[in-house]
């Protein structure tokens, strides 16, 4: 019997997002937009006003079940903006984003975000879980999993402010995965944490995407992690998707060559050698 094609969980077409690089113009454009919205007016989004730039321009992307999609690109290439648009944090003003019905998206952008240092780990499970839209009953149901997976033991009854970055990472990751998302977004959130826990997370992600209607999108510039974890790579450069492939080594080579493209031949070889030395 032939296996059915993986379902597309998310389709993005011609997605644009612009920002303003100057604080004063940012405020000026923001005030104007607010007034226009108050009167139901909409200016042409595709026209850049003074000091505005495209953070994302014409992005097309599909996320299918089983994907562990790495989104990579130099700093400022638009990765986090794209993740915030997928997560619904920023509104979509130009472009289409279609999710398959009942798709649940859970993003982790920063480990401490939404957690409170003065409350215990256990109290923060409730805070963060509730923020993801879980009810008390759903959190209680997942509590054993959270306690077991995070492996924080008695630390769960200590204030979060006393946790190390790695311990916060354990808690944040575990609560996020306990929401049982269809699309799990990890934006540089696993850069900290001890090697044991990272390995546990990576194993978990590999198993996670084997379930039906599950996919992971992770933003990372750690080449080694991309090579080990991803089964598809999308490369962004200045807000444009310049490459996409399931051939991970080829994608990484393309990314590094693109990053180093502005250098002359000698500097490029030297930098490539240094990057490989530290990253691989």
């Amino acid at each position: 019997m032939q296996a059915s094609a993986p379902e597309t969980l998310l389709t993005i077409r011609d997605l644009h997002k612009k920002f303003c690089k100057d604080i004063r113009y940012n405020l000026m454009h923001g005030t104007r937009d607010m007034v226009e919205q108050a009167f139901g007016l909409e200016s042409d989004y595709m026209t850049l006003r003074k000091k505005e730039f495209w953070s994302l321009s014409g992005i097309d992307l599909d996320v299918k079940e089983g994907d562990i999609l790495a989104v990579i690109g130099a700093n400022g290439s638009g990765k986090t903006t794209l993740m915030r648009l997928i997560s619904g944090i920023y509104p979509i003003q130009k472009g289409d984003m279609n999710f398959s019905p009942q798709t649940r998206v859970t993003p982790i952008f920063a480990l401490r975000s939404g957690m409170h240092p003065l409350f215990t780990g256990r109290e923060n499970i409730n805070i963060k879980g509730a923020m993801y839209g879980m009810t008390k009953e759903q959190i209680d149901e997942k509590m054993d999993f959270i306690v077991e997976f995070s492996d924080l033991g008695d630390f769960l009854d200590m204030p979060l402010g006393n946790y190390s970055s790695g311990m916060k990472a354990r808690l944040a990751y575990t609560v996020a995965i306990a929401t049982d998302p269809n699309i799990f977004i990890i934006d540089e959130a696993l850069a900290v944490g001890d090697s044991m826990f990272k390995a546990k997370c990576f194993d978990h992600l590999q198993e996670f995407v084997k379930q039906p209607k599950r996919a992971v999108i992770f933003v990372s510039n750690h080449i080694h992690k991309v090579l080990r974890l991803a089964n598809r790579v999308a490369i962004l450069d200045k807000g444009v998707k310049i490459f996409e492939s399931s051939d991970i080594p080829e994608s990484v080579d393309y990314y590094m060559n693109n990053c180093l493209g502005r250098l002359d031949q000698k500097s490029r070889e030297h930098m490539l050698e240094r990057v490989k030395f530290y990253e691989l």
Binding site: N98, P101, T106
Partner: peptide, 19 residues
């Protein structure tokens, strides 16, 4: 046309329609 309905938590969002 924008059809960006997604479930986050127990809530369905429409990314194009903010209110």
């Amino acid at each position: 046309m924008r059809r960006s309905k997604v479930q986050i938590g127990n809530v369905n969002y429409d990314y194009g329609n903010v209110f």
